[in-house]
């Protein structure tokens, strides 16, 4: 295994995040803080507890997940899209690295960045509302699995996109709506029965439910279903990445 190459790609990507600290860290933290101010304090004070948890605390896992999903996708997508756009991808393609090593470098860095961001948002949330974490180990497992899975999805989007519009298309039109409709700000029980059924087709519901369970021991769907869904999604992304590299889709003519 070419560990030097994995390390080089990983460090290159982390250095890029460090160069754009304002965009990578500060901006998501500010927007999450605004969510807490608006939903947690202004609106949340008028909403009763959900499953014995104050509304402000209830939205903490959802907000972390919202940021985790969008940042994982955008970090990984931009990471691989930009070398394609600038032409520097030639160096990756001509280097003695396997596809697995390339993915490990790019996806590993994107997942690391979003996990760091998730933990920063967790720390930021504690400044606004008091909350506890019932299952910290499971919380980290969900954080890790979600970051890796959605970084893989971002990597796929970055390879598929051939312009900046397409790069934004999936995160804006699919990921963000699914996350908002996935129970970030409400419990599925609060929806009318028809929409409760419809929402079960949204994979993000399972991620947020499992993550929230690790905090408060309450969940919209069973923890097993959450873990199964994220594992299936991870498997699908891995299979797709494998196919991309096997065929050279949008990478090699």
């Amino acid at each position: 295994m070419n560990l030097h190459a994995v390390g080089a790609i990983y460090r290159f990507e982390m250095a890029r995040a460090a160069r754009t600290l304002l965009q990578s860290i500060v901006s998501p933290v500010i927007s999450t803080s605004l969510y807490f101010v608006v939903f947690g304090a202004a609106i949340g004070s008028r909403i009763t507890e959900i499953g014995g948890v104050s509304y402000g605390a209830f939205i903490v896992p959802g907000l972390i997940m919202l940021m985790l999903l969008t940042q994982s996708v955008s970090n990984a997508a931009f990471g691989i899209f930009f070398p394609k756009f600038s032409g520097t991808i030639y160096e990756i393609l001509s280097a003695p690295v396997s596809y697995f090593e390339v993915v490990l470098g790019y996806v590993g860095a994107a997942a690391t960045k979003s996990i760091i961001l998730g933990l920063i948002i967790l720390a930021t949330a504690s400044l606004f509302v008091p909350f506890g974490i019932a299952h910290p180990a499971w919380m980290l497992v969900f954080l890790l699995l979600t970051a890796v899975t959605f970084s893989l999805l971002g990597f796929i989007i970055g390879i598929w996109a051939d312009n900046f519009d397409k790069l934004q298309l999936v995160p804006l039109l699919i990921i963000t709506p699914l996350t908002f409709l996935g129970g970030s700000f409400y419990s599925v029980d609060m929806l009318p029965p028809f929409w409760q059924t419809v929402t079960l087709f949204n994979p993000v519901v399972y991620l947020i439910s499992g993550f929230r369970w690790s905090f408060y021991d309450i969940a919209d769907v069973s923890v097993g279903a959450s873990l199964t869904m994220i594992t299936v999604f991870l498997g699908l992304c891995l299979a797709l990445v494998g196919w991309i590299f096997k065929t050279g889709y949008r990478l090699k003519a």
Binding site: N2, H4, A5, G7, A8, I9, F12, E91, I92, A95, P96, V97
Partner: peptide
């Protein structure tokens, strides 16, 4: 970066 990418 290039040197490490090529496994050196």
């Amino acid at each position: 970066f290039s040197r490490r990418l090529f496994g050196r």
